[in-house]
């Protein structure tokens, strides 16, 4: 066993002390290579084959399963192309490689925009999309598992950083949170507050662009005509709605089935931030400014698209 490194040498400025410490490290290394180490089990040699990993499912670390996703895609595709008749504009602006944070407006009691965006990108670009969402999903039995297998991830800054920076994935987030889908029909297409700008900070830290997406149609797919705060509080969900769908389709089918609205999505120009990634802190005022600018970008794109829209049902 090599002598213990001198503590003062570690912190000291002295060049000789540093050399001493280096020598000690060398000695430790020699110890290891000479087989005199405390470790009784030999390390695998460098360049050894990867460890045997007998997995039996394709569920990744985020809970997403490509197998489950392909089943979901097959089930949802008629809805996507026949029911909502989704049309994209500017899909080429979504990067085909590298991480990017997709940001969109959020609407409908059961938001129809999230599956449409995820399905569309996976279908057209053959890239997986991970959707950051409220932890509420994870705590719902059965729904939580399906949500997770379908690419849902709890919106946590650390999760976002790993997905965007380390794994260079496409990540979808709705900065309005539950305030977007929870608004009444009379408030449609008026964007809510963009949270606390956390998505900007995540994109800055990960060094990825934000790609804004404006969605028209989702608002009318399941409009909320009445909300009950007491029931929402009692059940612990963000809003407890009565939707127009429940009146038209009846209380059961109407709870899950969207109206066959025409959905149009417009991808806006990616926003790059001229800041170095991996910083501990970013300017709060800059974050709020950028967040507000992106909100205004989406808001004005929505107004423009609504000016051109002749019919809710046919676009």
């Amino acid at each position: 066993m090599a002598p213990r490194p001198d503590r003062t040498a570690k912190s000291g400025q002295d060049a000789t002390a540093a050399a001493e410490a280096l020598k000690h490290l060398q000695a430790v290394d020699d110890d290891l290579t000479a087989g005199r180490s405390l470790v009784p089990v030999a390390h695998p040699p460098a360049g050894a084959p990867p460890l045997h990993d007998p997995r039996m499912s394709d569920v990744d670390e985020w809970g997403r399963s490509e197998h489950m996703r392909s089943i979901a895609r097959r089930a949802f595709d008629p809805m996507y192309s026949k029911w909502f008749r989704v049309e994209w504009e500017g899909l080429e602006k979504i990067p085909t490689d590298g991480g990017a944070l997709l940001v969109a407006n959020h609407a409908a009691a059961i938001p129809s925009d999230a599956p449409v965006i995820m399905h569309g990108i996976e279908k057209e670009l053959q890239r997986p999309v991970y959707g950051l969402a409220d932890q509420l999903f994870k705590s719902l039995p059965f729904v939580g598992v399906l949500w997770s297998r379908g690419g849902g991830v709890v919106a946590h800054p650390d999760n976002a950083y790993r997905l965007l920076r380390e794994q260079k994935q496409l990540v979808l987030v709705f900065p309005e949170g539950s305030k977007g889908p929870g608004k009444l029909y009379s408030q449609r297409y008026r964007l809510r507050r963009f949270g606390r700008g956390g998505f900007i900070e995540n994109a800055m830290r990960a060094g990825v662009p934000v790609v804004p997406i404006a969605v028209v149609g989702a608002e009318e797919s399941m409009p909320i005509i009445y909300k009950n705060t007491t029931l929402a509080k009692l059940t612990g969900i963000p809003y407890f709605p009565v939707t127009a769908n429940q009146i038209v389709f009846g209380p059961f089918l109407g709870t899950v089935l969207h109206f066959p609205v025409k959905m149009r999505l417009k991808v806006l120009d990616p926003v790059h931030f001229d800041v170095p990634p991996d910083q501990d802190r970013y300017s709060k005022s800059r974050i709020m400014d950028e967040s507000e600018q992106i909100r205004e970008l989406i808001q004005s794109a929505l107004y423009e698209m609504l000016r051109d829209r002749k019919s809710v049902w046919f676009g």
Binding site: S37, L38, P40, V59, E61, P141, G144
Partner: peptide
């Protein structure tokens, strides 16, 4: 299992536990 939940688990082999204890001792 809990009905409706399928959480992800991580494991460490008991041999790796012992090896890691000895490893940190050895490398200070």
């Amino acid at each position: 299992k809990l009905a409706g939940f399928d959480p992800r688990f991580q494991f460490v082999h008991e041999e790796d536990v012992i090896r890691s204890i000895l490893f940190v001792l050895d490398n200070h």
